[in-house]
Structures are given as C-alpha cells and as structure tokens.
Design a protein around this nucleic acid. Structure first.
Lengths: 200, 200
DNA sequence: TGGGTCATGTAACCTGTTACATGATTAG
DNA sequence: CTAATCATGTAACAGGTTACATGACCCA
C-alpha cells in the first residue's frame, strides 16, 4: 500500500525521500502516515522493481539530494493498483475494537468518554490543510482536474467527523437509558459493587 | 491491539484459539480481522505475560482443546488498555489513499467507480450479525449492559455506510461538474489523448 | 467417499514502529 | 548560541499475511 502511495506522489512530480515524508506529515496525515525509515526502505525496493529511478543532485552546503522520478513501468503499476480490488474491504478500526469491550468499565465513565469524543476534532480544518503543502496547493491552481480528488478526501474527512459526532450523541443516549434502568434497582452503584455483582 | 482484543473476548468467557478465530470471522469482521496463525502466536505471548492461563481439555474423538481463561493480571491489563489514549488517532484508510490518486484515471471511470460504491453494502446487515455468533447473542439476552456496546459498534457501521453513500453522491456531482467543464473545450477526449496532453 | 467443521499449529515473509545516528545551514 | 529545517539513513523489534501441514469426525 505504502509503495503505491509513494508512487502516486512521485507521479505528481519528482521528489526526494524527505519531501515525500513532508507530504505524508502535512497533507495525508488524516488517512495515512509514514516514517522516514520506511520511506527510504520502500524507495530502495521500488527502484529494484524498476518503478522509479534515482538522480543525484549535488548541492552546495546542503547534503546531496537523491531525487526520484517515476518510470513508464512505475506508471503502469500505479494504474494497475488504482483499478484493482475496488471492493472496499472491511477497514480495521482500533477505536471500534475498544468500544466493543467498554462493558468492562462503569457506564458513567463511558458516557464521559463519548462526551469528550463529541467535542474532539479529528481532522485538521481546510484552512490548515490547504496551506500545509505548497505543492498540493499549486496543483490545485494549475490542475483543477487532479485537485478535485484531493478535495474529495477532505470532504470525506468532514463528513466522517460529522457522522462521528452524531454517533456519539446516539451512544450517550443509549448509555443514559441503560443508566436509568439500573438506577431503579441499584441506587449507589460503584465500580467495585459491579465487580461483586459479576462474580456471582 | 490484537492481544487486547483477544483479552476482551476471553474476559467474556473462556475460549480456545479456534473459538476466538470464529468470533473475529463472524462478528468483529467489519472492524478487525485475525488469522489463526496470529491468534495462536499471541495466545502464547499472553500466557508468558501472565494475562491468561491454559487448561487442557481431553476430548473423545476430537483433538484436545486448549481452553484459555483470563487471570486477574489480565483483567487489570484490559482495564488499563480501555482507559489509555482516548485521543482518537488518525485512522489509516487505504481507500482514501487510492481516492487521492484517482486523477491518474479518466473521469468517466471514476464516476463509474463511485456509482458502484454507492450500491455496495460494506457491512453485513443486523440480522446476519445477530445470528452469526451464538455467544454474542446469548450475551445480548443475559447481560444487556454489556451487549449495548456491541449494538453501538453495529450502529456505527450503519451510520458509516450511510455517510459513505452521501459522500459518493457528492463525488459523482463534483466529477460530473468537472466533466462538463472539460467537455466544452475538448469534445471526444480519450484516455490516450489525456496522456499526450500531460506529456507536453 | 468427499467436503465441511473442529482443532492444532509452523515458517517465511512483508510491513510498520521506535530508537538511534550524522551533519550542515539558517533564523531567532 | 540554540533550535528548527534539510537531508540522509541503519538496526532491532513488533505486528500482520500467506502458505503449508495434520488429523479425525460428521453429514450427504
């Protein structure tokens, strides 16, 4: 996956490992991340596969640059990847995994958690996003037909965040219902009491 | 992450590696997956850490069972994990990574893709979900206070899917706009022509 | 008698994370 | 003078995937 992400970035213009790292950090961070260590490792592998090619650029003062450009074979591979398995696979979500087991914690604590989550902004706002990466911003001006897709991912982020907030509201409602149900039977319920209850 | 998922499952009742695999396959598949190879590996590690403990159950005919149960130390670890880093980190989304680079493909192809995605159901429907795993179903009847959280993850799935459909509509609208814009200037635009265009 | 389920795993590989390591330039 | 930025990486480890391997039972 990362290999193809890097390939896509290089297809939009030659880049060094360092530049690739900055794009991940500044612009793709809400749906993908990558450490320099991994980027350099993948670049080596991709060069071996013939997807990209290296040019040394000697610089005065600064360390030399290794600039990578995409090869025709690399571009073919990028297209192949884009077209392949368009069946959206079940995305792994650590956050839902945790939710699934929250029954172990007292209800009040979970209500508190969802209230906090409701306020937390997951994605950086557009303003930040737009100014973060000069390269992408330039692209948006020069090639609107490519920049649309960038806009689509940002819109996804916005809609996801809104949905998450709605979901939090739903969770809070459900948990408060549960709380009232148990309140009737058991008035001052502490976590320790709940533990005792379970062990019977 | 997987270690803690397994720990959570065992905390809801003793299980063999095989049983854990079936729960992942039948009930958690929309937010997490696990291969048997990995499950057995993790179980070993978790036993070494003292989070779980093994009992051999000799069976007539069938191979022996290795039934795992949670230890007090394991339960403590589960609670620690549930409470730790409640800051929802940027979830890695291979699907958005691909969207980001769709500019490489012709617009019509991408519109077709989003139209197909709009119709594709990502999550299995509740009926299937509920009947899939007898253990979870029983839990829903016996311990409504724990089953709520399971319901919450299912509701998340439903809301996510609805949001994705809305997003697809938005994407189609945006791409059709783009198509009309380019239509004015360049009438019978083939992918090959686009390639030529780019290389200038 | 052949395929599905129950039940165990191993080995090799690929991918991702954490920590370390260097060194010059530039801006405050 | 100090911290950030540009620019390169390596080493060790953790986590996930793919493929292989075994064996008995049960149902059609």
């Amino acid at each position: 996956m990362l290999k193809h992400g890097i390939l896509g970035l290089i297809s939009n213009g030659d880049k060094t490992g360092y530049e690739i790292m900055t794009v991940f950090r500044d612009s793709l961070n809400h749906f993908w991340t990558a450490q320099t260590s991994q980027i350099y490792r993948e670049l080596q592998a991709m060069e071996k596969s013939g997807w990209i090619r290296q040019t040394h650029v000697v610089q005065a003062g600064k360390p030399d640059k290794h600039v990578f450009s995409i090869t025709p074979a690399g571009h073919e591979e990028l297209l192949r990847w884009l077209r392949q398995d368009n069946i959206p696979a079940g995305t792994r979500n650590p956050f839902l995994l945790k939710t699934f087991f929250r029954g172990e914690l007292p209800v009040e604590e979970n209500i508190g958690f969802f209230k906090a989550l409701q306020c937390a902004a997951v994605f950086p706002d557009e303003g930040k996003q737009a100014s973060a990466n000069a390269d992408l911003y330039r692209q948006a001006v020069d090639h609107p037909e490519k920049a649309v897709y960038w806009k689509l991912t940002i819109e996804f982020g916005r809609m996801y965040e809104k949905m998450q907030q709605e979901w939090c509201k739903y969770c809070i409602r459900e948990l408060e219902k549960l709380q009232h149900m148990t309140d009737g039977r058991n008035h001052h319920d502490t976590p320790a009491d709940a533990e005792q209850e379970k062990k019977r």
